[in-house]
């Protein structure tokens, strides 16, 4: 997994609340193989009309070209468990989403793919959005070591679960960590089946 330490990048002030995973990637694209890249499917129905023409959505505006950070309002990534929502963000080039709250499953999926879900207070989200909207070149600096977001001379704190922070900083993979506990897993399995034999069905 790719490490996330700090990032300075063009930022798109999306500003939407309740950006659900059906918007992040509509279900009809999810049978496609990842090898094609999922970037074009990101927020597809907000970005493209019936004939595939661009609707001029802010993500596609010239001033946001190359954006690697988006800022949204509350409850980003709410909805289904589709990890494809993260694949779409990642393949588009997004490495960090800043919002006052995230869907739990989305936040977990994000970290497992190296994408930072940075939680800010609702007030700070409003301030950051206003600063970005007024900026000629909307850019942010996100520092995961210090848990700070910088825009111009302004600085804002953000939160992320301490373990997830370490995973992102180190690019740790869950499976490698789990395999160190192989012996404990085997012992637990035997105990679990002895105590609750009904876990083996039929």
């Amino acid at each position: 997994m790719e490490r996330f330490i700090h990032l300075e990048a063009t930022t798109c002030p999306l500003g939407l609340a309740n950006v659900d995973t059906d918007q992040l990637i509509p279900a009809r694209f999810m049978s496609r193989p990842r090898s094609e890249g999922y970037g074009r499917f990101l927020l597809h129905d907000l970005r493209f009309g019936p004939d595939g023409q661009s609707l001029g959505f802010m993500l596609d505006e010239a001033r946001h070209a190359g954006a690697a950070i988006v800022v949204a309002r509350r409850n980003f990534g709410t909805g289904s468990s589709r990890e494809a929502a993260v694949y779409a963000l990642w393949d588009f080039g997004i490495r960090c989403v800043i919002a006052p709250s995230f869907g739990d499953i989305f936040a977990s999926n994000a970290v497992k793919n190296g994408l930072l879900p940075a939680q800010v207070s609702p007030e700070d989200a409003e301030t950051i959005l206003a600063l970005l909207e007024g900026a000629e070149h909307p850019r942010l600096k996100v520092d995961l070591e210090d848990l700070r977001i910088e825009i111009g001379h302004r600085s804002f704190p953000f939160a992320i679960d301490a373990v997830r922070r370490l995973q992102l900083l180190n690019g740790w993979d869950d499976l490698d960590l789990t395999r160190r506990h192989a012996g404990e897993i085997t012992a637990f399995r035997a105990r679990r089946i002895a105590e609750a034999p009904w876990i083996l069905p039929g």
């Binding site: 289904s80 990890e83 494809a84 499953i105 999926n109 497992k112 869950d174």
Partner: peptide, 11 residues
Amino acid sequence: AFGIGASEVAH
């Protein structure tokens, strides 16, 4: 009981 993403399903 809870939903998980593809990386967790694989795990």
